[in-house]
Design a binder for these strands. Sequence first.
DNA 1: TTTCTATTTAGAATAGTTCTAATTCTCACT
DNA 2: AGTGAGAATTAGAACTATTCTAAATAGAAA
Lengths: 149, 149
Amino acid sequence: MDTASRTEALSQRLADSGLRSTPQREVVYDVLLKKRDHPTADEVFARVKPELPTISLATVYNCLETLVACDLVRAVNIERGPTRYCPNLRPHAHFHDVKTGRTHDIDLPPEVLEKVQAVLPKGYKPSSIEITFRGSAGAPVDATGKSTS
Amino acid sequence: MDTASRTEALSQRLADSGLRSTPQREVVYDVLLKKRDHPTADEVFARVKPELPTISLATVYNCLETLVACDLVRAVNIERGPTRYCPNLRPHAHFHDVKTGRTHDIDLPPEVLEKVQAVLPKGYKPSSIEITFRGSAGAPVDATGKSTS
DNA sequence: TTTCTATTTAGAATAGTTCTAATTCTCACT
DNA sequence: AGTGAGAATTAGAACTATTCTAAATAGAAA
Ligand SMILES: [Mn+2]
Ligand SMILES: [Mn+2]
Ligand SMILES: [Zn+2]
Ligand SMILES: [Zn+2]
């Protein structure tokens, strides 16, 4: 999907919520889609600025909040520290690599989701599930001791 | 388990890490065990104060950090906002009830844990898994419209 | 074109946590 | 028992991430 059609999809979704499409909202959404590394608001701010040099950090927070409210973006709170933002709308878990500090998306098959939901006692109605792994995702090392990656 | 034997278990675990058992650490741990509602540091502070009126908030943070480092307590970050603390060491998920704001523990059978771990690609070595539900846990309502709880 | 309202903006304010430097406590050793 | 070294506690300052406020701007509607 190119930038034009993304922008179209975005304004549609915003309109559905009675909101306007703005350059700030478009560029914030674009940078999230372009580099899907779960950036913080500060990082989004830094990436948007070259495109919109007069944007403010407050606006970045506002735009992110709006995108989350429209269900185009997920706010991710893996641990204490700044909220991170993820435009991946498919059901997925997060793997937080302690070595690199990076967070990867892990697709969740419906079958696993169901299995997890099944642990809930009757009457518990979840509206969302968040699964987070913490650990190392280092490339496996072979018998020579060299990395295989 | 009474307070005396809890204290014993605590000092043992602290000693294993080369740390001292102190009144502050004991009382902080005790209040976590006594009311398992995932309190914030501020809430722990308020509960400890009657017992140790001169304790400081900094010390509460220090004690909680120590207990987490000793694997006696889990730090829980459900969403943006203060970290919460949980002394339940069994594998469990958290259900955050949006209506009441309360967070409940949900036991996780080993079978479900395995199923969830199985989504990880080869080479991903998780050291911990966090599963959080968000939703409402309202008591089911019967045909009369009265709560069944 | 005027008006109405949404949005953006800069900066102040706030919340939660961590840091700093001084004090107090504990324990090992005499 | 007395002393010294290091561990732990403490109050308050500092810090980070976020939210709020109030004024400026921009866009749609009339
Ligand atoms: Mn942020
Ligand atoms: Mn807290
Ligand atoms: Zn993601
Ligand atoms: Zn818990």
